[in-house]
Amino acid sequence: MTAYILCFILFLVGLYGVITRRNLVKIAISLSVMELSTFLLFALIGYADGGVAPIVDPSNPAKVYVDPMPQALVLTAIVIGLATTAMLMATIIRLYRKYGTFDIREIKNLKG
């Protein structure tokens, strides 16, 4: 149970970073922290105490297998996360070129 609560705290740390930081790159890092906490939660769900990898050997079956499904899903989600982070970074570099700053308070052309 502690692990789940730690995941949740990590999620909130990321959310705090997204809300309070002013630097674009720090916002991106905070988003990555949130992302990883979600992945961690997902991977923990598949964990079984003392479980082994789910390659079933009929002659010598193990007592507990870990659930392989969340691992596959997290792997897929990591690939998506790679794409999102790359996209965000490209946007940040472009923004820096246009505005000459990473400070989000200076970047406010759009309002209303």
Partner: peptide, 16 residues
């Protein structure tokens, strides 16, 4: 694709 992402970001920086 990972190489492309890396190269694209590097090229951005060089242009900068």
């Amino acid at each position: 694709s990972v190489l492309t992402i890396f190269l694209a970001l590097v090229i951005f920086k060089e242009e900068l």
